[in-house]
Amino acid sequence: MCGIAGILLKNEGSGIDTGPALIDMLDGCQHRGPDSTGFALYEGGEEGQLKLRFHVGSDNEAGDAIAALKTVFDEHGARVIEEERIAGSYRVVVRFSGDLQKFSYAVEHAAKVVSIGESLEIVKDVGGAHEVDDTYDVHLFRGSHGLGHVRLATESDVKPEASHPFWATGFADVAIVHNGQITNYWKMRRRLERRGFAFATDNDSELIAVYLADKMNQGIALKDSLASSIDDMDGTFSFLVSTRDEIGYAKDRLAAKPMIMFENDDLIAIASEEVSLNRLFPGRALDTREPPPGSYRTWSRSI
């Protein structure tokens, strides 16, 4: 139960920056989810370098987790370039060129992974958009695109690791934010597990991310992966997905979850409610569109 937002900037100099824009959009729909807030941000990225973020907790717990992580790094030939602890999280940049899926499953056993990618960094924690920004300095993020999410916990606990966005466990740079409920979750999950994929949570949003990442890994375009997701998944959903180079959306056929978008020469912005879009353009009536039921679309970055 939540609110979602996404933005892709088409050119520089529009006066809008990804980090502050997402903070504003999520603050605008915080009523949809006061428990936790999260961001998936794409900035820079170098070949052969991975940015990793973990939840490690505090004090001794954190020390143990980081020590365990370093052992895994050594075993998999990942060399630490920079590292930083922010609140209960641990951010590290490593040089790595091995099998990413094996590596990510191994680090998952040492600590709770938030995100892995050359460009992607996910920041998420309990509290509102501004609280999370105060801790993690989200407003400093630039980059071409990003997603955001506010969450009201219904079935699972209010914990940082249960908040969104979700990273596609095992695949670099794929993130998702989702509003709704996938009702054939276990069926789909078992299908993917039989093919060797592991899941870090029981959250249906992680499933969507892994489902899409798997398709793309098979060489299927993001757009076509979204098309098949609407056929394969049951339930009510509106979700946004991002990769290093694209963002996209899909909406269920029952149209039970809201989504609205605005596009001009500078950007494409999508959110649960128009009030979030209007935060980017205060005092202006926007020419927005509501995507029809059962529809999907992608946009590629140009900067």
Binding site: E273, G283, R284, T288
Partner: peptide
């Protein structure tokens, strides 16, 4: 003025008056 797609604008009005919302309204 400046409705900016905010929710609940004008709910509960029970009088026959004209209300002009200069922009977009929310839920």
């Amino acid at each position: 003025l400046n409705p900016d797609a905010r929710h609940h604008i004008g709910v509960g009005v029970v009088h026959a008056v004209d209300i002009h919302v200069r922009g977009s309204a929310g839920y």
